[in-house]
Design a protein around this nucleic acid. Structure first.
Lengths: 192, 192
DNA sequence: TTTTGAAATGAATAAATATTCATTTAACTT
DNA sequence: AAGTTAAATGAATATTTATTCATTTCAAAA
């Protein structure tokens, strides 16, 4: 007998993501999705109960792949500043390289698919946890402004996201020298 | 004879905005919209040709009301720093007080209703023009970092928007003392 | 090689939603 | 006060889109 292809689930999710990034959730049609994935509409329903479940699964799928490696490349004995620099760089690159993901989350949280019962903030907290810890440590060492660490994290992420958004929109990469400039601004903002 | 109520057009647009802010464009239903506006569904079609036109008109309507008064309260002989402080405060308050507007734009630009032909960036440029001018003037006076002024504007707006988003989400107002803290961070980021 | 059972298909059907229109209501005119 | 006209209504209809299912295809087991 034929066997269910595990890859096909991913394929469908990625196709959905691609359509949603282009047209928003309002533009997601099961038939278009099937076409994008080069499957018959019916096939989609073998892997997902219905549209609702598909979108929710996509949310979980992206959540899982996000929590990954903001901290990659950071050495335990780096200085706080260079740790923050690296983590900020990772955050920026992540936002630039996977713009579809940010678009999806933006859409999902304002959609009929999202119910308050789901704990967004907790999940988000989870992702930002490593940044938060670094800020705390920096404050302990008197290097970072002694204001509400949540505010610091919020502001830094806001800066980086807006830079990423512009970079994606104008289709430009961020060169090393530009990154130096940008991090200079970020650091001046938060250093004590 | 009965006369067409000019206010009713606004009422319908505001109702649509309110629903879209809650459920995203994917959740906008003409029947719900009519209910929200306390009208019969048919009535909506007296004022708007179809759903498509309604959403586009809402876009234009919000565009018009946005371009308003970021510069309010600014005196010609204020210092550059205090001008930037005031304009940043206006921007923050605008984002906090009219969160529905930001949500709508977020949704619209990723929807089937939006076609590339519409010049988004131009419009956005228009709105940010006063901020841009202040940054230029600050750079001339050697007060602001001499980097690409677009980058400065992008970063400042990013910071303020993320603060606004958090404020709206957690339903907290930004007190005067918090604003002093926040602007301190903004200013440190961009001052030379 | 044949049998078997689940995967895949896509046209047919169901469900959701947009739009129309015959009818009613309200305001203005004569 | 009666007549007139456009706005308002909302049930009926049209359209779009989700979902099903009878049929076919494929790959593994016998």
């Amino acid at each position: 007998m034929r066997t269910k292809d595990e890859e096909k689930e991913r394929l469908i999710l990625e196709s959905a993501l691609s359509i949603i990034a282009k047209t928003g959730l309002a533009g997601l049609r099961m038939s278009d999705l099937a076409k994008e994935a080069k499957l018959a509409t019916g096939t989609v329903y073998i892997y997902f109960k219905d549209k609702d479940q598909l979108v929710r699964k996509l949310y979980l799928y992206l959540m899982r792949t996000t929590t990954s490696d903001l901290s990659s490349g950071i050495q335990p004995d780096d200085s706080i500043k260079s740790k923050i620099k690296k983590i900020s760089h990772n955050y920026l690159l992540d936002s630039i390289l996977k713009p579809q993901k940010s678009i999806f989350f933006e859409q999902y949280f304002r959609s009929p698919f999202f119910h308050e019962t789901e704990s967004v903030l907790n999940e988000e907290d989870q992702i930002l946890q490593p940044i938060y810890q670094l800020v705390l440590e920096g404050q302990r060492q008197d290097i970072i402004k002694k204001v509400n660490p949540d505010l610091i994290v919020t502001i830094v992420c806001g800066m980086l996201e807006s830079v990423a958004k512009t970079a994606v929109y104008t289709d430009k990469i961020v060169s090393d020298s530009e990154w130096e400039l940008i991090f200079g601004i970020v650091w001046d903002a938060i250093k004590s």
